[in-house]
Simulated scan of single mutants.
Amino acid sequence: MNNLVTPPQRRARMQLQDGRILAWSEWGDVDGVPVLFCPGAGMSGWLGFGAQDLPDLGLKLLAIDRPGLGLSDAHPHKTLSSWVDDTRELIQCHNLDNVLAVGFSQGAPFAFALAGESLVKAIAIVSGQDELIHPHIKPLLHPDVAGMIAAVQQDPVEFEQQFSQMATPEGLWRLIIGMSGECDRRLYDSETFGKAYQQALQEGFSQGAQGYVRDLVNTFSSWPVKLENITVPVDLWYGGADTSTVHSPDFGATLASRLPNASHTVDPEAGGSILWTRSRDILTKLKSYINKLP
């Protein structure tokens, strides 16, 4: 299990038109088909996945530090829409073609936002957070999650100010471990993987908690992208043994019903860490959409 993660092969940054820095980590062939990775909550792009599979598949993974996380400058008014604008600049500046994307956990709405603006040819949503305010999802939420959403809806500014004073990378790591089932804890508690995950969290909080909390507010609110209008292929991957309360409570069933072009896989033996335990399957299926293009 220790070969599931490796340090970034390259780290890069660019200056956006408004002067901010956008940073990311890379693995794979520099000339490979680009896969934009949207990491989970509070994480920098330091923790990638599938590094051992990328060369064989002809892929290049770019794990982006969202604004305010890692080495990317904060956006004073970050939204899912501003994230799309930043990513469009990255794609255009580097002349990226046939771009794919993967969203893990809280990274899911960021990947959906890219698909909604047709910046990518296909996406994979892995252990993804659902649109938690959707009427079919709200009744299924854990009370703690429902309470946070209610607080965001009541006063997002107050929530952001208060939560930014409390959130820490250590606290988020304890929360992740506490929500994880046995199969996930075996991986997360392993020395190499655990250290890598915690380094991504430490980097994610290196500018403070504001970047993470702003992501919470944005993803716990109504999303600007209408999933029913996304026409690119969307692969949904969930583990049936995933016990996280912040991932999709019905393992993507409602998401699959809302998306016009969805593939839905629930592996009963896997947990929320399916991103790493089935990385080759996830990347192979995602790459297949590029192979079908004229």
Rank of each mutant, 00 (worst) to 15 (best):
N2R: 12
L4I: 15
P7K: 02
R11A: 09
R13N: 04
M14K: 00
Q15L: 02
Q17I: 00
R20K: 05
I21P: 00
I21K: 03
I21M: 02
D31K: 11
D31V: 01
L36M: 08
G40K: 00
G40C: 00
A41F: 12
M43R: 14
G45Y: 05
W46L: 00
Q52I: 07
L54G: 09
I64H: 05
I64C: 04
R66A: 07
P67L: 12
G70Y: 05
L71F: 14
D73S: 10
S82N: 04
V84N: 07
D86I: 00
D86E: 02
T87Y: 01
T87K: 01
R88V: 13
L90D: 06
I91A: 13
I91R: 14
Q92D: 13
Q92F: 04
Q92T: 14
C93A: 10
L96M: 15
N98W: 09
V99W: 04
L100S: 06
S105E: 08
A108P: 14
F110Y: 13
A111F: 02
L114R: 03
V120F: 05
I125E: 02
V126D: 03
S127R: 06
Q129W: 00
L132T: 15
I133F: 04
H134I: 05
H136S: 11
I137Q: 03
P139W: 11
P139Q: 10
L140Y: 11
L141M: 03
P143G: 08
V145F: 04
G147W: 07
M148A: 12
V152H: 04
D155R: 03
F159G: 01
F159Y: 12
F159Q: 02
F159N: 01
E160L: 08
Q161K: 13
Q165F: 05
A167H: 14
G171C: 14
G171M: 15
G178Q: 06
M179N: 05
E182L: 12
C183W: 01
C183Y: 02
D184H: 10
R185S: 01
R185D: 01
R186C: 09
L187I: 15
Y188C: 07
D189G: 06
G194M: 06
K195C: 09
Q198V: 08
A200N: 06
Q202P: 03
E203M: 14
E203A: 08
A209E: 12
D215R: 11
L216R: 12
L216W: 09
S222Q: 14
V225K: 13
K226C: 04
N229E: 07
V234H: 05
W237Y: 08
A241Y: 04
D242G: 04
S244W: 08
V246D: 14
H247A: 10
S248L: 09
R258V: 00
P260K: 14
A262E: 07
S263F: 06
T265S: 01
G272D: 13
I274Q: 11
W276S: 01
T277I: 00
S279E: 04
S279P: 08
I282H: 05
L283G: 01
S288L: 08
